[in-house]
Design a protein around this nucleic acid. Structure first.
Lengths: 337, 337
DNA sequence: CTCGTAAGCCGAACCGGTTAAGTTACGACG
DNA sequence: CGTCGTAACTTAACCGGTTCGGCTTACGAG
């Protein structure tokens, strides 16, 4: 089967290649009659634009880039990413944009990927996740003039366009909840402190515990189940055992629940557990976990829309997507005694 | 910063564009001295090939396609996919191939995607997952002459190149395990019967229960936690309550465990549970779940290697990746009484 | 009737590579 | 010493679109 090109359509319609191009791209320069004829013939012949050719001449790739600097293990464990990618995809596919997804080991490789993409003209723009404190990607993207939308708090985005959720408000809501149940000793099992979101929540935790006059302690982890288990063990064996633990993701919360149960403790009778990043995981445990819920799929979609807007000339700005909602389930209750 | 092209390198080296192309692609037609000089200059100027141009002239896109016909919800819930994608990526990125990932709603959209990709010359080959019984994608891919590697049993691949794991052997191992513990009444909470893997396991379950002289019953689901819960409830409320349940993925097994615990039953004392598709999920529940483990990341990598081989002219063939291994944990034990 | 203008279309350059075919220079061989 | 073969390049066509300058033609104003 011979591939259908614009040249062939031009021949059949008895017009020039250029005219066909104008007609197909809805641009002025051809009469409505001609346009209609061209469109009809193109449809009949099942013409599909050749991406490479278009990209080469128009200097647009119609592709967005997304780099995930996480281990394969983390990607598997955390439902977060696949949901986010799904959301991005849902928007892109309807605009018939493509997604270049790259999984790399660390931040340096991520930087190298941006360099390469910029040089290759591989992508029209990128979505940047896992924003850090003093993120080195920001100056690089500026230097490369690679359009980007960051996923994270404006306080970390240094004026670049970003989409964020209000982590501070969320932390306040979580602590208000446990405080109102009567808890005085609260622990936080956090992710790595270099992650922007974690940093924001660390600060919010500190401020809110002081405001509510609670005793707060923090354990930093790498977000993995293993370290979630270790942190929970430490907290339970601790002299100053907390009566409530707030985890920084759902995986560690589920892992923590298993530790609690393994030690013969009951939730929420003996200890209250709260998860972040709500997912099915939190719903299917027994008891079901109280969790801070965001709509990850929607988040991915929102970010993608912002990037499209940006390429269409919109002003770069910070955009608040939504504030996470605390879903109260069975793992939180009054402290013992 | 002006983009560096082959033309510019040619000018600096005082040779023609064509010679530079030969040199850079390690092809005969230039002396070693010239080649070295060209490579040196190219490196100095930080030349990166323009993908679109290369693709247009060489008629290779250096991109593989992967379509996932699942709901966003499933993708989030099942760790399987992200792991598989990670494995694919790990191979592609070192060959500097790209991955075109498309998430669609159903099989028809998946077929449409292949048609589009073939017309656009968007991908050099595709990886096909979730093989069905009498899969309509097989004839389409043949018709489009789109190179493909199927993920699934040769019995379903109709002679197309495929990579598979031995589901029958795995099911035998699982049933041997529960039978040797003394169980006589075994249930299987399966995925949708149109999925090839499920079909294979359904048959294996039937044959093995007969061989071991067990009473077997099967409930089909859509792989979701919700239906896993429903199926488990049904089985527990059943007159012929089984003493062991084998689930078709990890998610449903975890959900099933919650149901069991919610009804005040104990695992494995009252009922034995076995999961498929081992993941962190199975390890962090309490008790930890006995599970059929595969290396999903490695599986993705293997499939990708086969597709690369295929494009390099290898004979299409079925390739057994590995047989899943039963990891015995705390959720399986002798039946009560 | 003439001229200006603009819509509609053509031809060709261009994007940045790949590659078939043609050209030289040089060494081997009869 | 003429001929032939081959290594090392050059030239130019080509991939399939986009885009821009310029050529026709029709039409309205003066």
């Amino acid at each position: 089967m011979p591939r259908v090109t614009i040249k062939e359509i031009a021949r059949r319609c008895g017009v020039s290649q250029g005219a066909v191009s104008y007609a197909l791209n809805n641009q002025p320069g051809v009469s409505e009659a001609t346009r209609a004829r061209v469109l009809k013939v193109a449809a009949e012949m099942e013409w599909v634009p050749n991406r490479a050719a278009r990209q080469l001449s128009a200097a647009r790739s119609e592709t967005f880039g997304l780099v995930l600097a996480r281990t394969a293990q983390t990607l598997i464990e955390e439902p977060y990413f696949m949901g986010f990618v799904g959301g991005v995809e849902s928007v892109l596919s309807e605009k018939s944009y493509a997604l270049a997804l790259q999984v790399v080991a660390d931040l340096d490789e991520e930087l190298a990927t941006y360099r390469k993409w910029a040089a290759e003209r591989r992508v029209d723009g990128v979505i940047v996740v896992d924003l850090r404190v003093g993120d080195p990607r920001i100056p690089l993207l500026r230097k490369l003039s690679l359009p980007a939308v960051l996923v994270g708090d404006p306080a970390l985005a240094d004026g670049m366009p970003c989409v964020w959720t209000d982590g501070t408000a969320a932390m306040n809501a979580a602590l208000d909840h446990v405080a109102s149940l009567g808890h005085r000793d609260v622990a936080r099992v956090a992710g790595p402190p270099e992650y922007g979101d974690v940093w924001i929540r660390d600060r919010a935790f500190e401020v809110a515990t002081r405001r509510l006059d609670l005793t707060g302690q923090v354990r930093h982890t790498d977000f993995s189940a293993v370290e979630g288990v270790a942190a929970t063990r430490e907290l339970l064996g601790n002299g100053a055992r907390p009566t409530a633990i707030i985890y920084d993701n759902d995986l560690m919360a589920v892992a923590g629940l298993a530790v609690v149960q393994g030690q013969g403790l009951r939730t929420p009778d003996d200890i209250t557990l709260v998860a972040w990043d709500d997912s099915t995981l939190c719903r299917i445990t027994h008891p079901a976990l109280t969790a801070m819920s965001h709509n990850i799929v929607g988040y991915g979609a929102e970010v993608t829309h912002r990037l499209l807007d940006l390429l269409n000339g919109a002003q770069p700005q910070a955009h608040l997507y939504s504030t996470p909602l605390l879903i109260i389930r069975d793992s939180s209750g009054p402290p013992p005694g």
